[in-house]
Amino acid sequence: MAFGKYAVAVGFLAISGAFGPAAAKITQYECKFPYEEARGGGWIPEILILTDDDVKGEITVFDPVIKHFVGNPIEARLSGRTKARSTYTWELSYRNRGQGGRMIYTFSYFNNGQPAKMKGEPGGYDNSWTGEGTCKVSKG
């Protein structure tokens, strides 16, 4: 009798597992970008957390720069996806000592083991900063 209950439980898990990945499409990227003064002195953050929730249709991003100027995660958007790469973008508007501006960020994660790439462009200026890093990806 105990074996029968076990078989039913295993069968249920197998069936729910078959449906689970299709229903739960939440991907979280926890990335680290080494600090380099030449990369804008902190405009490319050392830590980045981006959550892509296909179920809710929401993408959020949080890092020390966003924490400093906004205090909580902000919205990002998926700007491109291939079998090898996912690319996201977001804008950060900020005010600092009476002056304001905006940074336009692009983040790309590569499935083939290449380093993740991040680019920050100050709105209204021609310069930009880039960084390469590593990411831990969680799916649930």
Rank of each mutant, 00 (worst) to 15 (best):
I104M: 07
P21S: 13
Y105W: 05
Y6S: 14
G17I: 03
C31Y: 04
E75C: 04
G101I: 00
G140T: 14
I44V: 10
A84R: 14
P73L: 06
K136I: 11
A76F: 07
P64Y: 07
P21D: 12
F62I: 09
A76V: 09
I47L: 14
P122E: 05
G42W: 04
T130C: 01
N127T: 13
N127D: 13
G80N: 14
F107Y: 14
G123C: 02
G80L: 11
P45A: 13
E132W: 14
E46G: 08
D54M: 09
I47N: 15
F33R: 06
G100L: 00
L48R: 06
T134Q: 14
A22R: 11
V8G: 03
G140F: 13
Q99E: 10
S86R: 15
V55S: 07
D53S: 03
L48Y: 02
S16G: 00
L13N: 12
S16D: 04
G42T: 08
C135H: 08
H68G: 04
L78W: 05
E121D: 05
R81V: 10
V8I: 13
K136C: 01
M1G: 13
P122N: 05
Y94G: 00
T130K: 03
G98T: 03
W43P: 00
G113K: 09
F33V: 03
